[in-house]
């Protein structure tokens, strides 16, 4: 187990290094010039050149990347070009909001998705099954900004059950979590359904029935733990998809998380913030996958980490 974690940790560091290199290179090749953004349209060429030198952006790519890496190792993500504060501080102040949103979203998609899939599988071939699968299809295909606006209109504007936007109470959390969770819920419903149908056909389920075990116990004790395994592996991957969705959803709901921060930074070519948010997201994805892999052996004794 310790050997396994050690190996995974080394792998994770390599992944983060790769992510930083690729993002850095892409931003370097970008035709947009961050210095122009900082200096403003009226700046003289001399001023622009001064700022460029100040930020070290006149150096060759390798040198720039090396500087960034050496600072990164000591936990320094650099200073924002526009906001004139440390990137680390900016991210740390906004991360809790994003994590909360992500937690809410995962909860939504698991609760909705898994129960939909489970019911559809057990009621396979009935009208219930078909209705649920149509619903899941809508969930998978609807773009997040449409779902977000729709939820806002119905539940905030018309019904006034939840606030329109902002951050603070649990009521603020409901609509953004739902918006983010619905997409995943659709996926999970479909995955859970096919996984469950597959498991219900297995010999051991027949054995359980031949033993005279009650239907509920067969579904929840015998089938569910087996059916949920592929779903757990998905949660790790899902965090990556959330990182993309968070940019849209936080903007729609005015949620003060790193998604909003990233969105502002992208518009102004604020390279240190973009780099910082990308690395934090990559770290979250790596961590999510690791957690999913660590949980798996607790459900399936056949899986051994080594």
């Amino acid at each position: 187990m310790i050997a396994y974690l050690g190996r995974r940790l080394i792998q994770s560091l390599l992944i983060l290094l790769g992510v930083s290199l690729i993002t850095f290179a892409l931003l370097y090749l970008l035709p947009a010039d961050p210095v122009r953004q900082i200096a403003g349209r009226s700046a003289t060429p001399q001023t622009v050149e001064n700022i460029r030198q100040q930020l070290g952006l006149d150096q060759p790519f390798i040198v720039q990347y090396w500087h960034y890496l050496t600072k990164l190792v000591s936990g320094d993500l650099g200073r924002s070009y526009i906001q004139r504060s440390e990137v680390t501080e900016l991210i740390v102040s906004r991360l809790p909001a994003s994590l909360l949103l992500m937690l809410g979203a995962i909860l939504c998609e698991l609760l909705i998705g898994l129960s939909m899939g489970l019911i559809a599988a057990v009621k396979r071939g009935t009208a219930t099954d078909q209705t649920l699968m149509v619903a899941s299809f809508v969930g998978v295909s609807a773009p997040q900004f449409v779902v977000g606006l729709l939820l806002l209109y119905v539940f905030a504007v018309r019904l006034s059950w939840f606030p329109i936007g902002g951050y603070g109470t649990w009521r603020h959390l409901v609509l953004p979590s739902l918006t983010m969770g619905i997409l995943g819920a659709g996926w999970y419903a479909r995955m859970m359904r096919s996984s469950m149908i597959d498991v219900l056909r297995q010999d051991y389920v027949r054995t359980a029935r031949a033993k005279g075990i009650a239907r509920g116990a067969i579904i929840f004790r015998h089938a569910l733990p087996n059916a949920i395994l592929p779903v757990i592996a998905m949660i790790g991957i899902d965090i990556g998809i959330f990182m993309g969705g968070i940019v849209v959803v936080e903007s729609v709901f005015g949620w003060p998380g790193i998604g909003q921060l990233a969105w502002q930074a992208i518009q102004r070519v604020d390279i240190p913030i973009i780099m910082g948010v990308t690395l934090v997201s990559a770290f979250a994805i790596v961590l999510g996958n690791l957690l999913a892999d660590i949980i798996a052996p607790f459900i399936d004794p056949r899986i051994k980490l080594r």
Binding site: D203, Y204, T207, N226, D300
Partner: peptide, 13 residues
């Protein structure tokens, strides 16, 4: 049943 390999539930003791 025939298949002892698949007739027992793998996740239950």
């Amino acid at each position: 049943f025939q298949e002892p390999m698949t007739s027992l539930n793998p996740v239950l003791s």
